[in-house]
Design a protein around this nucleic acid. Sequence first.
DNA 1: CACTTTACACCTAGGTGGTAAGAT
DNA 2: ATCTTACCACCTAGGTGTAAAGTG
Lengths: 235, 235
Amino acid sequence: MIITKAGRRMFPAMRVKMTGLDPHQQYYIAMDIIPVDNKRYRYVYHSSKWMVAGNADSPVPPRVYIHPDSPASGETWMRQVVSFDKLKLTNNELDDQGHIILHSMHKYQPRVHIIRKECGEELSPVKVIPTGDGVRAFSFTETVFTTVTAYQNQQITRLKIDRNPFAKGFRDSGRNRMGLEALVESYAFWRPSLRTLTFEDIPGMTKQDGWNRILWWLLSFIKTDWKILTSYQQR
Amino acid sequence: MIITKAGRRMFPAMRVKMTGLDPHQQYYIAMDIIPVDNKRYRYVYHSSKWMVAGNADSPVPPRVYIHPDSPASGETWMRQVVSFDKLKLTNNELDDQGHIILHSMHKYQPRVHIIRKECGEELSPVKVIPTGDGVRAFSFTETVFTTVTAYQNQQITRLKIDRNPFAKGFRDSGRNRMGLEALVESYAFWRPSLRTLTFEDIPGMTKQDGWNRILWWLLSFIKTDWKILTSYQQR
DNA sequence: CACTTTACACCTAGGTGGTAAGAT
DNA sequence: ATCTTACCACCTAGGTGTAAAGTG
């Protein structure tokens, strides 16, 4: 995932569907991003792999992205897909825009928090999320990512350009972009287990959310495990 | 003020500075827009005046614009200028976007509401604002406006084009737009009392807010009281 | 005739990766 | 060598008044 000084969105954005909330209870929804391990990585081109390159850098100031619809009732949260598309990542440890601060070349995993609102309680974008009875956290292994300041891998770049509307200017104008269906098929050829990851298998998941999860999966798959490509135009 | 089916912003937007709130108390800030009288108007070109053209149309569904930062602490509200620039007006009585519904060719006045948040209370965009001990309403006579679907008066059009960044494409490219200082001077020549309306006279008012209030004042002045111009290119 | 609606060119505002220069 | 930064062209998204067509 690209991180910049000014702050950069994640793509694709995390989108989650809530169930089982108390319709009349007020909740905050928040996201933080935690290190997957204590390592720093570098990308090795000849093997197309991320490899450990030492221990993690010193911790950064903790930040929490409070979903802008917070607080809202369980009913409101459950009626919609909750999208984190406005969340931004930065590598600026002195950031004062409330963005989430991360180290480049490290592995991270987003966490979604559901926090029951007690009267008078206050949630802060710069404090660690409290733990307790009314707080639950969820994370999804397919959303693990590696931070970079420039893409290390042409396949990641291609997926981003093909799927992110804001990168349309970089698409090959010659032919239509590859549909995600076809993309999944081609990846599945090399990695049969991916065949099972279709949204039809996940009850209650909409088509759009399904594609987002598949895309997440592809991205993490390519970053950590891609074996086909041996030459890279990009450094 | 222009109203459309899809919803149109007010320009200039209302911007208010809060004082005297309890820093630790939570408040909603909201706006509604109430009829100034029970009349319908038409614009008479030869006299450059809005004139009564019958009684008001039947009432529209009541709508409230809840400021998107709501709820927030008194401290938060007082730290910033509270801007209502995302509020939209519509003439569509079946609107489902939560915009404020108004009749065209009527006179209206925005009201700002400060609502102390009690635990468990809920504020709705489609309900009338409650009255009670923790609720206060403010309105400013210089923000009275007349609704239209197309401008009736070339001077209003010119002020909007000159001051609204989104209308830059319609500005005379030949000369620089008239500074608001010069604008006020020229209007004051015909209406000496306007001279007194400068932001320096209003304690605690920032320059930017001052210009906004003067602009509001100019707009209502022109609409209701302009006597200089006798010919209109625009119908 | 007196308004209202629609399609449009032209803006603001801001999200993309590319590219070349900078930093260590 | 390796990673980061600043600037850029090219997009999306949406706020303007205009002009012409629509409405009753």
